[in-house]
Amino acid sequence: MAKYIYQYASWPHFTWNEQEVQALLGNVRHLQGKLLGQMSTVGFSLKEETVLTTLTLDVLKSSEIEGEILNYEHVRSSIARRLGMEYAGMVYPDRNVEGVVEMMLDATQNYKQPLDEDRLFGWHAALFPTGRSGMHKIDVARYRSGEMQVVSGAMGKEKIHYEAPAANTVENEMDVFLKWFNEEEKTDLVLKSAIAHFWFIIIHPFDDGNGRMARAISDLLLARSDDTSQRFYSLSSQILAERKAYYDVLQKTQFSDGDITGWLVWYLNCLYRALQSTETTFQKVLHKADFWDKHIETELNARQRLMLNKMLDGFDGKLTSSKWAKITKASQQTALRDIQDLIDKNILQKEPQGGRSTNYELL
């Protein structure tokens, strides 16, 4: 019968293919540096907006990986308030949103602080403020006291995907993990974030919330690797997009004899794709900021501003005068006047191909 990684005598000594991993790590580090360089050149409010959006996505997507859908506005408001950012339309979120936000902000804003048992218990208490996971009462703010299996399927036909180390070994396992986390300094921090994520998941020290906590631990080490609490990319968003592959590689690597190359390769590639998609978003944000800088003196009405922002954010489909009228709740006549005014101001133009209806695009 196949053994779990923690049942080998070499546990927790991990090995990997140095050449393969270093090549990917180099790519990640290069893109990370490029992105941080770009961010350092933008103004304060743009930077603030990017950080707020990234942290909001991180909280939403990390919960969604576990099948929990949180309210976007609640998460955004909670983060903004805690970071001292005010904006119109802020709402007061419920307790479970506050808890997830609290954990994520502690991980990313206090990234220089050591990680200890007490801090992890605080995160766990924040995640489960009622002492329950759904309907079930769980051990909160302490390590699990029962056995832990990851199971799927209907009752009587369950499939065991993973069985974690015995409950009576968890404290000792976590002592070794935390000592390594706080004292080992030779491993590159991006690589360390990948190892820590996997190691924590294997121990599965809590009754529930292990996935979200593992991702917060990754974010903490990624913040250390960037040496800034300002987050510009979201690993959790990318993991969600690749959720099936994430679980597949975890499941495969849990049976290895200590060689975690497969996991590290997947994690670094996933992080690289997260950085790539951030770069694309960032280019859009910069383009939008440039546009409004250029048109700071241009006289525009509220309808025009609304539609231009929509186009700068990436308008779905083609823009026609009837869509303009519908979105701005104006008459067809008013829509045509608004559009013609923007054509006269060299902001919009008619799309050349024509056809039955006229389409418009930004110049």
Rank of each mutant, 00 (worst) to 15 (best):
G33N: 14
Q251T: 09
V59D: 00
A80K: 01
R81E: 15
I296N: 13
S152D: 12
E73T: 02
K137P: 00
R305I: 12
T261Y: 02
K329F: 09
L306D: 13
T328C: 15
I79D: 04
V190M: 05
N309F: 04
L36C: 01
I138N: 14
V91H: 10
G43R: 12
R132Y: 12
F200L: 13
N96P: 03
D344H: 07
A107I: 00
R212P: 00
I138P: 01
V97D: 12
L300G: 11
I202F: 06
T54W: 04
P205C: 13
I239E: 06
D248T: 03
H161D: 13
L178T: 04
G89L: 13
T130P: 06
I79H: 04
L348T: 06
E351T: 09
V140R: 06
E68W: 03
K288P: 05
V97R: 04
D248Y: 00
A214Q: 12
L286F: 02
A335H: 07
V100D: 09
S45I: 08
E171N: 07
W16P: 00
M213D: 08
E185H: 03
A289L: 08
M311I: 04
G209D: 09
I138V: 10
M311A: 06
L31K: 09
R82A: 13
V265W: 03
T169E: 14
R81T: 09
R273I: 03
L222C: 10
V59I: 00
R273S: 13
D259V: 00
L300Q: 10
E18Y: 07
P114I: 08
A214I: 00
H13N: 12
L83E: 15
L57D: 13
S236W: 05
V51G: 02
F121C: 13
G26S: 13
L25H: 05
T50S: 05
H161C: 09
S193A: 12
G317P: 06
D175E: 15
S78P: 01
L319E: 15
A166G: 07
K252L: 15
S237W: 03
N172G: 11
Y162K: 01
P129S: 11
T56G: 00
E183K: 07
A302W: 10
Y267E: 13
S63I: 02
G153R: 02
E48V: 06
R76E: 15
T328F: 07
G33H: 01
V176N: 10
L120M: 15
E102G: 03
F255G: 07
V51H: 10
K326W: 04
